[in-house]
Design a binder for these strands. Sequence first.
DNA 1: TGGTGTCTTTGATTCGGGTCAATCTATTTA
DNA 2: TAAATAGATTGACCCGAATCAAAGACACCA
Lengths: 211, 211
Amino acid sequence: MTPDQLVQLSKHSTRRTVEPGTELVGESLQTKTYSNIISGVVKLSKMMADGRQQIVGLQFAPDFLGRPFRKQNGVSAEAATDVKVCSFPKAAIERMIGEMPELEHKLLEQTLTELDEARDWMLTLGRKTAGEKVASFLLLIATHAFPDNEEDWVTFDLPMSRTDIADFLGLTMETVSRQLTKLRKEDVIRIVNNRHVTVPDLARLSDKAGF
Amino acid sequence: MTPDQLVQLSKHSTRRTVEPGTELVGESLQTKTYSNIISGVVKLSKMMADGRQQIVGLQFAPDFLGRPFRKQNGVSAEAATDVKVCSFPKAAIERMIGEMPELEHKLLEQTLTELDEARDWMLTLGRKTAGEKVASFLLLIATHAFPDNEEDWVTFDLPMSRTDIADFLGLTMETVSRQLTKLRKEDVIRIVNNRHVTVPDLARLSDKAGF
DNA sequence: TGGTGTCTTTGATTCGGGTCAATCTATTTA
DNA sequence: TAAATAGATTGACCCGAATCAAAGACACCA
C-alpha cells in the first residue's frame, strides 16, 4: 500500500505482537478484523477430519491477512514465528475499499500473486520427489527472506519446525530430516542449531529443486 | 457479469469454438486477448524441464480466462473438451476495468474462488491417498458439471483422459485406472464407454474422497 | 548437576504407488 | 472385414517414502 493509504488505515488500527503457534484466523470463527503483517511469517493450513494436515501457504510481511467479502474457506492462519500484525475492523476496511479503487486493485494484485504461488506449489506437491521438495522449500524461504538479494549465496533462519516443513511439502518429518541431511552431506547447505541455514551456492540448490 | 457489462464487452468480441487440445494461452507467448468461457472445460497446466506435468486448475463456463495486469506465470491453458470462447483485446478489457469498478470486483471474486480451489487441491495433492484423490476428482467434476444439483446422484461425462486425470492428481495413468476399477467394483460409480460416469450416491463418493 | 521434555536424527522394515510390459477395447482407415 | 492406431486395463515387480522404534541434541528448570 501507499504511505497515504496506510496512514488512513492506521487511524482504526491496533498493533500487537504474537508468539509462534498463536491462531490468527480461526478455521470457522468469524473474524471481525483484517490485518497487515508487519514482520514474521504466518502459515495457512487446512486439516482433514482425521488430523492429516497440509500447509497451503506462507505469508510474509507486508502481506495482507484476511478475506474481504468472503467467509474463510476452512483455512486457518497461525503465527509460525514471532509475528507483528496491525489489525483493523472488517467494516472499516470494506468501507475504505469502496472509497478507494486502488485499494481493491492492490488486493487483486496480492490475490493473483498468491494464486500463482499456490499453483507453483501444486507442481511441487504433485510431481516432485522428496529431495526436490525440500530443496524447493529452502529456495522459497531463501528468496522470500531477502527478496532482492543479488548475491549467489544466502544465510537465514528457518521459520518453522521439521514437522511444519513436512506438512507444507506433503511428506513426513523423518523424510524431511533425511533429505536435509543429504543436502548437508552434499554441501548444498550448511545447518547450525537446527534452524540456521547457509546456502553457499543458490544455483546448485536451484538445480536440486528441479529447475 | 451483468448483462449490461456483457453487452459492452461483446462490441469488441470475437467468438470461436476450438477442439480439445487447442492451446488457448501459451506458456510464454504474450497473449493479446482475454476470454470468457461460454461452454466446455479448459485445463491449466505447468510443466517441468524434464517433461513432468501438473494440471493446476480446471476452468468451466462462465469463467474468465486470462491475467489482467500480469504476465502469464508459466501456466498454459488448453481446451480439455470442445470449448466455445468469447475473446476481447487486452486493451479493451483494461480500459473497461478502469471505468467500471464492479468489473474489477468481479475479477477479485473469481480470483479468490480460484485461490480457494487451488488450496483445496493442495490438500488433495499433499495428503490424500490415490483412492481418495480419484474420488475427489470425480466429486469435483460432478459438482462443477451441475453446480446446483439437488439430487443425491449424478451422471456426467469426464472432460478428460486418464492421463490428464493423472496429471491433475499427481499420479500415473495406471494408478488412476486401478482406482477407478476399484470404485467400480465397490459400486460407488458406474462407467460406460470410458467417459460416461454415473454416481448413484454422492455421499458415498464423498466418504471415499476423505470428507 | 542432573532430570525432563521437545525436537531432531538415524535405523530397520513395510507398503503404496511407480515402472515396465502385455492385453483388451474402440474407433478409424483401407 | 480386416488392419491399424490410440486409449484403457491388468499383471508382475520394484523402489521411494511411510511407519515404527530407538537414540541423540539441546533448552529449561528444579
